[in-house]
Design a protein around this nucleic acid. Structure first.
Lengths: 125, 125
DNA sequence: AACGAATATATCTTTTCCCATATATTACGT
DNA sequence: ACGTAATATATGGGAAAAGATATATTCGTT
């Protein structure tokens, strides 16, 4: 008993789309698509918004089950929920294609790259 | 002069996603993905909402440039904007995959199929 | 020109969302 | 135990979105 059956997760289209309808939240997700894991201060620096703003939008994404989080010391790392249905992953990937080279998404990546004192620090540069 | 240069159309992610964040509007688009062209009364019947409701949501989609419309007599036919950027089309298609067999989208298709007196009437049954 | 059918818009109310700011929580170092 | 850094939550106000209903527009028919 207690067989660990695999229950595929379910996401309502309206949940996904109202989440990524907000540019700040989409910017977070686009950053997380390129960098598996990012902590709040990295996202805050890259996007250039106030910390509570980023934190609240991350909470929104977390409640929508689009991202998962993990604490490591003082830092909390977010990543795209690895159990997302395929169609959701595809939508995010297609969006990344759509915004490639477009502001403010490109700038976010640049800001992150030039951020000093990054906590997790990219292991393999 | 007046060279007819091809100017690719541009759609902001937030425009697309706030449009399809609303279930009624997504239902319209999903119906239009399967049936190239539908008039307002068909969409109204399939979805089962009040006519002004459908009309207003279609206006929203039109202003977002996600659909185009064409008048033929009393009827106004809507279709998915044929000039959408590829990534947008792909997002819609992926969404269709995601909602295949899911309520209320499946039911909408069934309701449309059993609608009497459809104006355009499917030419080739 | 009058009527009816299909669709669109306007108005009002209610709700939801967002920003800014302040404050709370959690964990590490001393 | 205290201080501080990283993050989270709470609050209050303002703007945008949505539903319901009424009314307007547009076109075909007689």
């Amino acid at each position: 008993m207690g067989k660990d059956i695999f229950v595929p997760m379910n996401i309502l289209p309206s949940t996904l789309y109202s989440a990524i309808a907000h540019e700040t939240r989409l910017r977070c997700l686009m950053l997380l698509l390129e960098h598996d894991e990012l902590c709040v201060c990295e996202l805050t620096h890259a996007i250039g918004a106030a910390q509570p703003t980023i934190s609240r939008h991350l909470a929104h994404l977390r409640e929508a089950e689009l991202v998962s989080d993990r604490r490591e010391g003082l830092w909390i790392y977010y990543r795209i929920n690895p159990e997302l249905p395929v169609w959701v992953t595809n939508v995010l990937q297609e969006t990344a294609n759509g915004v490639r080279g477009v502001a403010p998404f490109t700038e976010d990546l640049a800001m992150l790259k030039q951020m000093p004192n990054r906590p997790g620090a990219p292991r393999c540069a």
